[in-house]
């Protein structure tokens, strides 16, 4: 019988059979930065924020199976520098105008950017032209802010049991599409209580009439770093879903 132990940055972590490195880390209360992972959804590994070194090799923690004796490096300079590049890429790829965004202060992209010390964009901006969908009475879809984490796509399929969102296009031309005859959100099956409507880590899908409810200074990431917030909420969810 194996001991089911690996180490993350030198700290021993117990894992269960079938765990990914991310799942083991969440259960152990260790934060590995991520944007496309949610314990309730099937891991996909698209944002690459959770890239760790496993016995010297770069792997996505959210999809890589945990195994006995793995030496995982997570919070190291090289990886954090890579994470800074990824957030910078996501910022220049879309149109992220934080001052005018209802999600500001509660946005995971912004929070990770803060925590990796992103002060500048580094790259020239792309300024893509993207469509907004304001048709739904309760939910707003602003594609300018989409980061293609596919959480809404998966949440619809896996949790809500509905086919609402999908990715279309290819490469930098990827875009989120809505499953309805008109292509509009109002004609889709999406409801305000669905996980798909609430899972967006950024401000691409937001519930209407709740913007700016919480004053600046009291929003989720105003005082607490994402590591602390994430560990607290996801550990509970992880144990609920996978035991």
């Amino acid at each position: 019988m194996s001991e089911n132990t690996l180490t993350i940055d030198g700290k021993p972590v117990h894992f269960k059979d079938g765990d990914t490195i991310m799942e083991a880390a969440i259960r152990a209360g260790i934060y590995i930065p991520h944007l496309c992972h949610d314990p309730e959804l099937k891991p996909q590994g698209n944002c690459k924020m959770c890239e760790v070194k496993v016995n010297g090799r770069n792997c996505s923690a959210c999809t890589f199976p945990a195994a006995e004796g793995q030496k995982v490096l997570n919070n190291i300079k090289e990886l954090n520098e890579n994470r800074r590049i990824i957030v910078q890429m996501l910022f220049v790829e879309g149109n992220h105008l934080c001052p005018g965004c209802e999600k500001s202060g509660n946005c995971k992209l912004q929070a990770i950017a803060y925590s990796v010390g992103m002060m500048e964009y580094r790259f020239p901006l792309i300024y893509p032209k993207r469509e907004m969908d304001t048709s739904h009475p309760d939910i707003l879809l602003d594609r300018n802010r989409c980061i293609f984490c596919e959480m809404c796509v998966r949440a619809g399929r896996e949790v809500d049991g509905k086919e609402v969102f999908a990715i279309s296009g290819r490469g930098i031309g990827n875009h989120l599409i809505v499953n309805s005859p008109s292509g509009l959100l109002k004609d889709s099956l999406l409801e305000v209580t669905d996980k798909a409507a609430n899972v967006c880590p950024v401000g691409a899908i937001i519930i209407k009439r709740h913007g700016f409810e919480v004053p600046i200074g009291q929003r989720i990431y105003d005082k607490k770093q994402i590591a602390e917030v994430s560990v607290a909420t996801e550990k509970v969810l992880e144990e609920k879903v996978h035991g």
Binding site: F91, N95, H96, L97, C98, P99, G100, E120, Y121, L125, Y127, K129
Partner: peptide, 18 residues
């Protein structure tokens, strides 16, 4: 030093870029 959102990413005036 680039100071503030507009110097760093164009900010709200950059809405006209679309």
């Amino acid at each position: 030093i680039a100071v503030g959102a507009c110097a760093i990413n164009g900010g709200l005036p950059a809405l006209r870029n679309f």
